[in-house]
Each structure stands twice: as C-alpha cells, then as structure tokens.
Design a protein around this nucleic acid. Structure first.
Lengths: 204, 204, 204, 204
DNA sequence: TATGAATGAGATTTCATTCAT
DNA sequence: CATGAATGAAATCTCATTCAT
C-alpha cells in the first residue's frame, strides 16, 4: 500500500456517499466500512467529519476555478477558426465540469447542502450561476463587438443560452446515478437547444 | 382561523425545518422543541418520522396536481381574451406554486432529498420538469394550431420558455430564506425573459 | 419505584465516584453501571455530564450557605451560657459540614477540581477559607468587645484557631474512605488543639 | 544550560499539565502537542503514560527527601548563632519546597491524585504532614532540651507552628497560577503567623 | 530517535422509538 | 391527548498504545 493512499481513498468514498445521500446522512462508519479502515483511523487523517467535506470542496474550487480560467483565456484569444461558436469551450464545460465524475459529485453535494451553510450557498451560486453566466455574457459581448451578433443585451442572451443547459443538467446530471445513457441524453438535448439558439441568432 | 391543532403545527414546523436543513439533519427533538410538545406526544400523531414526510409530500402532490389541472383547464378553454398569452396562468404558477410558502418548502425538500429515494426523485422530476414542460408544450401546440405561432417543435419552445424560469427559480427561490426581495427579483428577471421570448416569437 | 428516584440516585452515585476518583476520571458508564440505568437514560435526566456536577455543587452551596448563616445567627445572639466558647457551633461545623457525608464529598470534589475551573476555585476558597475564617474572626471580635478576650488582631486569632482544624481535616477527612475511625481521630486531635488554644488565651 | 533533551522536555510539559488539570484529564496528545513531538515518539522515552507520572514523583521524592535531610542535619548541629530560631530552615522550606516550581507542581499533583491511588496518598501524607510535623517536633524538643522553651508537648507545638503555614500554602500556593504576587502574600501571611507564634512562646 | 499509520476500547452524546400512566 | 421515563442503536470523536520503517 503506497503511503497517503488511505487519505485519498477516504476522500473518494466520502465524496461518493456524500453526493449520493447528502452529508448528514452519511456516517463516518459508512465511509470507513467501504475504505475499509477502522473509524479511529479516519481521525488520523482528518480532524473531524467536517474537514473531509472542506478538503473536498476546496479541491473542487481549485479545479472549477482552473477550468473557468482556462475557458476565459481561450475566449480572450481571437476565436479559433475551427471552433465556430465556442463549441469547443462548451464541450469542455460539459466534459470536464458538469459530467466529470469528481466535479459532478461536488456539484451535487453543493446543491444539496447549500441550504444548511451560507458558505456553501455562496459557492454553489458562484460555480453554477455567477461564473458560467458571466463567462457566457463576455462571449456574447465579444461577438457583438466583432459584429457577429447584433448589439444588444449580452446578459439576457447569456441566460437564454445557459438556461436550457442548466435545466437539462438539473434533470439528467443531478439525480440518480450518472450513467452513460444520461450523459448522452444530456449532450443531445442540450446540444439541440444550443444549435437552435445559434440558428435563431443567425450565427454561422 | 381555527386554532392550530397539534398535528398541523407539527407538520408546519417539520416542513420548515426539513426544507431548511434537509430531512436527515432534522431530529424529532428539533421539531418538538419548536411545536412545543414532548417527543412522546409526536408519536400519538404520527407513526414515525418518515410518516411526517409522507403526509407532507402527499399534501403537496394534491395541491400541485390541483394547480396543474386548473392550469390545463384554463388553457383548454378558448383563450381568455384578456389573458393575452397565458400570462395569467404563468402568474398562478409563480404565486401559487413556486413562491407559495407551502409549495416552495416542499419543492426545496424534494429537491434536496430526491437523491436518497427513488420515489422522491420521481416526484421531483414530475412536478418540476415533466408536468410544467408538458403543459407549456400543449400551450404552444395550441397556439400553433390557431396560427398564432408558426408550426414547429412545440417541445423545444417549451424548454426555451421554461428554462429561464427554472434557472431563476433555482437561483432565487431555492436557497436561503424566501424573502420578499428575492420574490421580487425572481418575478422581474423571469418576467423579462418571458417578455423577451414572446417578442422574439412575434406574439403580440 | 417512586418517580424522580432515578435522578437522585444518579446524583448520589455520581457524587460518590466524583469525590473518590475526580470528575474527569469518572465516566458516564461508571455512573450508570451503579445506578443502574442505560447511558441514554442518564441523558433524560441531565443535559450532559457537566450538569450533574453543577447540580451537585449548587446543592452544596445551598447547604453550606444555610449552615454558615445558621452559625452566624447563633453567634449574633447573646452567647448561650452552656455553650461556653461556641463549642456547640464548632461541633455543628464538624458534624454537619466537614464530616457530613454529602458536604464532605462535595468538599473533596471541589478540592480536587478547583484547579481546572475558575468558578470551582472561587467556591473552594469561599467555603473552606473565606467564610470559616470570617466567621471565626467575628466570634473573636465579639469576645473582645465583651472583654472575654483582650483586644487584639481578631483575624490573626481566627487563623490560629482554624488552621489546626483545617490541617486535620486535610489529613484525616480529605483522603481515603471517611471511616468512623478517621472521624474520631479528627475529632480528638482537632479538639485537643482547640482546647489548647482556649486555655492559652485564658478563656474559661 | 544544556540543550533540553526530549525526555526532559516531556517531563517538564507533563508536570505542568498534570499539576494544572490533573493526571487523568491530560492526554498523551496534549503533552506531545506542546513538546512538540508525535505521540509515537513519546513511547520511545516512556513505557506508558503512568511511567511519566512515576518518574516525576520519584524525582520529587528524591528532592524532597534530600531537602528534609538537609533540614534535619542543619538542626542537629548546634544551632547556628545567626539563625535565631531556625528561620533560615523555614526559609529553605518555603523557597526550595513549597514555592519551588518543580516541587510545588509535584505537591499539587500529589494533592489532586492522592484520592485514586493508595501509594500517592501515602506519599502526600508523608511529604506534607508526616515529615514536616516530625521535623518541627524535633526542633521544638531540642529547644526544650536546651531550656529555650518550657518543657511540654512538642508535637502539639509543631502543629500550632505548622498549621498556619499549611493553611496559607493551601490557600495561596495550591490553586491557580503560582504568581509572584501569591508567593509574596504567602510569605507575608505565613511570616506574620510565625512571628506571632515565636513571640507568644517567648522565644527571642 | 523519530515518525506515519493504524487500532481496540471506550467516551460522550444523539436519535427514533416505546410504553405505562 | 399528552407526558415521564426508559432504551437499543448508533453517531462522532478521543485515548493510550503498537509497530514497521
């Protein structure tokens, strides 16, 4: 057994259980049974139950932040010719964020627990509303600048673009097991709405 | 107002707490402390903790079902001249459903607990996706029939119409306290998107 | 079983164990095993372990306060002829305080735990130094007023009178089991010192 | 000053904590956190928690024994002319014993833990009652032999001499932090009682 | 010497629930 | 209807200790 293996295993199992049943419904026992270790061992690696959650969410913030930064950087560059309408970026948002095992589980967790903790609420809002909408708004503003889109309310457009994605995410990616079938369904339905949107706006 | 019977008081407090902290994070003690009664008294009114949840959700289903039925009936009638584009119906959906204290709390509850229970998951999907989208689809189909909207994919239109509402509901009505300010904000932002949609589609 | 019997039994056992081994060395388990009840039952009667201690010490303060008040009242009256030099009062201090099962156990407890709690420290000082010395000082001041003792430092006299009592109390009444033999020994040795003191001061 | 070896550091910290909170209330963790070392390291230096206590008390016995021996030797010699009434010896008893950081902490520890251990009880009695009283008795017996004091009960005199010292020690040196202010107060009050005693007995 | 990792036993406390009154 | 009293099970966490490295 490589050292530091246990701590990672704990985090992995804990995230799985937390995202399935919610933080308060998962006991230290449950986690340890699956790792498997004795309960006292867990306390060698973490101060308390809460710390597991914190480490998890801190890692999520790092990954989410890095992804958003990457997306914004990609957009700041003159648009890649082959990217058409930023499709590549949206793809990354789907694959490395909404449907990535780790991020998806963290998002479910945030979504469930935001009610009982102001900080989590803030985080949930940031990573599922604020940053994505902000990003999309900048994209549309840039397209308006370049004359690809008629001048108008970029913020409103961002909502029109993002809302269906969000809806399908909630419906297909935030409940039950994250099966391959659901991923596919999400991709299709969200893709359809995006295509519809782009067509209506006369892009292409 | 009839004097609040104990059973009703229990349900009221329980719903408040469940919708704030989530079902497993609320103890019988917590509920009884606020009612206020002794824990043993609660078991005179309910078989067990689960039953409180069940009664609550059953009542919700009744109310939600009744509302949806009412909405569909209103739509089935030749459109009320003064209603324009079903605005009155959407208003009812906002005021008597998404922002009604009881329904809102139930929706939050469903939203949180759906992960740990297949039945709740089914219910959540039904009352927040299936029925609203279905209804909206029928509305648009009817408008197409009457030539008010060009023939097309009513189901896709329904998503375009409903998704922003859903997004704002998630953002403003499903977290933190349901303040008057948040209600207003929701009404404005959602209203703006609806207006935008109607205008684009050439209705009016 | 009469109602409220359990709570008293818990207090009784807890005091016995606390005064023998010290508060932190006694577990809820230890107490419950002897009562005997299940651990969860204890929490029906007390909020937590600390509360047991608090109830105990509060009762002690009441009894100790009442005794001291009684002693002071007795002294304020013109001295009882048969009481000679307040011997009766000292007797009460011995029998109903230092050697009384309840008070003795509480004093041991205070003595042991004062180190870890400022409030207990205050209480210990009050009931074993402040009040007894104060009382004794008043007695001597009164005797000086009446010319039975030559005018002088009543406070210093109080220490001379009380210190041997305190020393023997510490040696015989604050360690090991409070046997009849130790009580006797305390009474004799302390009595001898008191007699010695009175003789030297020329009282009688 | 040689660099403080780990073992010594452990003993130092342990004594500080034990004397403040009592042996059972101090965990290996608490000690190691302050040393600072990992818990497993402690077990390289000591077999178990108990052994720390034992080493501490063994050292105390050595120091206390040495001091008492020194005091007795000093007394056995023809009285030092400048020492008057053994004042120098009493001073040593104060400074190198009751108020010495190490001895004071050990005495507090013994005082607290004597209840849970027969051996400690024996030790406490020996070093705080038996030996000091015995020593004082011999002093007074010697003074009687030399006609400086009238023949009488040396043992009773010893108690009269020592009891106030003991009382002030308990009150000022066995609770809370051992501040300079408390040391001073002890010295004054105890000194006053000693002076008073000597004057009354007509020594000088 | 020191540490990382683990653990059995046990501590305190909470929880949902029962039952006699 | 309501309560007082009790409880088995489990939750979180602490403790002293071990052992391989």
């Amino acid at each position: 057994m490589t050292p530091m293996h246990t701590k990672e295993k704990i985090l992995e199992i804990a995230l799985r259980l937390f995202s399935q049943r919610g933080y308060p419904a998962v006991s230290i026992r449950d986690i340890c049974k699956l790792v498997p270790i004795k309960e006292s061992t867990l306390y060698y690696h973490f101060e308390n139950k809460r710390e597991i959650l914190q480490v998890l969410l801190q890692r999520f913030e790092e990954r989410a932040g890095a992804l958003m930064d990457r997306m914004e950087t990609a957009m700041a560059d003159p648009l890649q010719p082959g990217d058409g309408f930023g499709t590549g970026v949206t793809q990354a948002f789907f694959d490395e964020y909404l449907m990535d095992d780790f991020c998806n589980a963290c998002l479910r967790l945030l979504r469930m627990e935001q009610g009982s903790d102001g900080e989590l609420q803030r985080s949930y809002d940031q990573w599922l509303f604020e940053r994505p909408l902000q990003f999309q708004e900048r994209v549309f503003a840039a397209l308006m600048d370049r004359g690809i889109l008629p001048k108008g309310d970029a913020s409103s457009l961002a909502v029109q673009y993002y809302a269906p994605i969000f809806l399908y995410m909630e419906r297909y990616l935030m409940c039950g097991e994250l099966t391959q079938e659901k991923r596919e369904r999400f991709r299709q339905e969200a893709g359809k709405q995006i295509a519809c949107f782009l067509q209506e706006k006369g892009v292409f």
